[in-house]
Design a protein around this nucleic acid. Structure first.
Lengths: 342, 342
DNA sequence: CTGAAAGCGCTTACAG
DNA sequence: CTGAAAGCGCTTACAG
């Protein structure tokens, strides 16, 4: 039978309200009394009852907002499922969780929605940021001025006052790719990297991690010059043709971004499907199909569920239980999928 | 603002108690009234408030027991962490979660603890079974006679009345191993399988999945005769020596069970560490060390956290919310780890 | 078959 | 600085 406030109150010879003040640092209490009560509570192993707290808080209506960008992509749809579960949990405990989906990337819209949520007195916001000066400012303003905690997820904005970030360690993701590709082509020969574009920080990091690890673990592997697909299948296919023409002996391909179907169809057309090993990112239906067919050998992914679920729950635990996030950077697992464990 | 029982009661012109009866099929209610209330609730989008329910149920004290076997192993210690989190959650909602750890495998002790929990009026039990006739009977008896739901985890007992199983799809695990090893040795040459023992069902399944997939995807790979380590490092090392002597060209090793350090140290001694690719199971500190050093190339694991957390929560959701488990077989993710994503 | 009331553990005005 | 009381949404005897 768990210890209750009432039991502590009896033991301390005070009222429930006083115990509450002592245990939750609400002030308006004599320091000696506070200390004594805290000690008794500790001794009795008091653990607050969430249900009781939830009931009492139900009057205040905790409101959490979640803002997704690129909500139309398959990955974000999986993220969204995690968020829906968080929504269920929050709402079954009497809170409100509002989800705003933005198609594509649009920092301006993120800011507009943030303002809207602030007017509606939301208590915390989780968002997928983009690298935008005004958005950085807005995040800092929300945290400092309005006292509304912000959590970033999927992508981070370093050097802002967001309380934490949930997402992939993109450098490590590149390293994992290098390890797999290096092993599977036997530690020698040529590999080509097709990156999505030059400016996206996550893709740059993947590239960096990949290059670093290749240098360290597979010094005999020759890396061709990095090419950019702009996440476009047509462009990716042309680049792939070009690579196969100029370097017919290439043994491995690493794609940091999109364009898988362009690459895979080109490989199929040229009949290189058995010889070329390809490592790509993220689990879309399409890329999973190529994985099953064997045109892609490995997919490296992020735990979409955690990315959707945790940011909202971190805010909930903070606002509801006063529990601070453990770490500023909460990296999700780097998941390796083959055709056998999808 | 979420809909409450009170609001439905007002709309229907009845009392809260009546709404409760209608929505939770408690009987003692006129069918027409019941139907009408259910309709109104649906229309208003009623979702029960967990906190309210938890508070009201607090009087009844829901008690859930979790029985672990082989609790001393590193894997089970990770499982236990998941169970501890479930314990926290259950207890913060006013329930009780009792954990019993058994060292090694002991079906008799499992049964004794089950009886004890029954006497103490526990409402549900999650357990790691072993293949034992009496245990099978006891599980069926608990479910049928005593009406105490049982969940198996880590290992399953098929054809019993346990409401569900949480754990690895062991055949699939073997397939994943085959896919990795086949790829990494380039689809040809010899591979050897070192299994833990002949009788453990999980290990047998891994072997089966491995052999099947090798046959289908890598017909050019030659499989040496399966050897048994009895999960013993010394035996494993001797077998490994023997294999290297008899088949010096062997390119890959798959271990279904324990004995990694025996195998790895033998490989190191013989200087084969760069040439031989090794796939093993489960994440112990030791095996992770070998992975980092490159003596093991891949570890295939089970999601220990889910295995510890879900069984207890499945029972809690069943007993507390009346929510039945979705599937009878809840397979955990098959996790692939390399030195880069541990 | 139905309603009124108590109570689960907590927080929060309010009164002192 | 402290206490008494109301109320959050639900379930459950109890009375009718």
């Amino acid at each position: 039978m768990a210890v209750t406030l009432q039991q502590i109150a009896e033991r301390a010879g005070v009222s429930r309200g006083t115990v509450d003040r002592a245990l939750n640092n609400r002030g308006r209490i004599r320091p000696e009394v506070e200390a004594r009560i805290q000690e008794i509570a500790k001794e009795m192993g008091y653990q607050p009852n969430r249900a009781g707290r939830a009931m009492a808080m139900a009057k205040k209506k905790l409101k959490i907002g979640v803002i997704l960008q690129s909500a139309e992509t398959p990955f974000m749809r999986d993220v969204l499922k995690g968020t829906e579960i968080a929504k269920n949990e929050v709402e079954s405990l009497g809170g409100t969780l509002f989800i705003h989906r933005i198609k594509g990337m649009d920092a301006g819209e993120v800011i507009r929605v943030m303002e809207e949520l602030r007017e509606k007195e939301f208590n915390g916001i989780a968002l997928v940021p983009s690298d935008d000066y005004l958005l950085r400012q807005t995040i800092d303003q929300f945290v400092d001025e309005y006292n509304i905690p912000i959590v970033t997820f999927n992508a981070d904005l370093e050097d802002t006052k967001r309380i934490c970030f949930v997402g992939q360690d993109t450098i490590q993701s590149g390293r994992v790719a290098a390890g797999l590709l290096g092993e599977v082509i036997g530690g020698q020969g040529q590999v080509a990297v097709l990156s999505g574009n030059e400016h996206n920080r996550a893709l740059k990091n993947r590239l960096k991690g990949f290059q670093q690890e290749m240098g360290v673990s597979f010094p005999e592997i020759e890396m061709l010059e990095t090419r950019y697909t702009y996440d476009d299948n047509w462009v990716a296919a042309r680049i792939m043709e070009d690579i196969l023409e100029g370097s017919p002996e290439v043994k491995g391909i690493y794609m940091t971004g999109y364009g898988e179907s362009g690459v895979c169809e080109c490989i199929r057309k040229k009949g290189k499907d058995k010889k070329l090993k390809v490592v790509a990112n993220d689990f879309s239906e399409e890329s999973i199909e190529y994985l099953k067919e064997g045109l892609l050998n490995f997919l490296i992914g992020q735990d979409a569920h955690v990315q959707g679920y945790e940011p909202a729950m971190i805010l909930f635990r903070l606002l509801f239980d006063g529990m601070k996030p453990e770490k500023e950077l909460q990296y999700t697992d780097i998941v390796i999928k083959t055709k056998y464990n999808i």
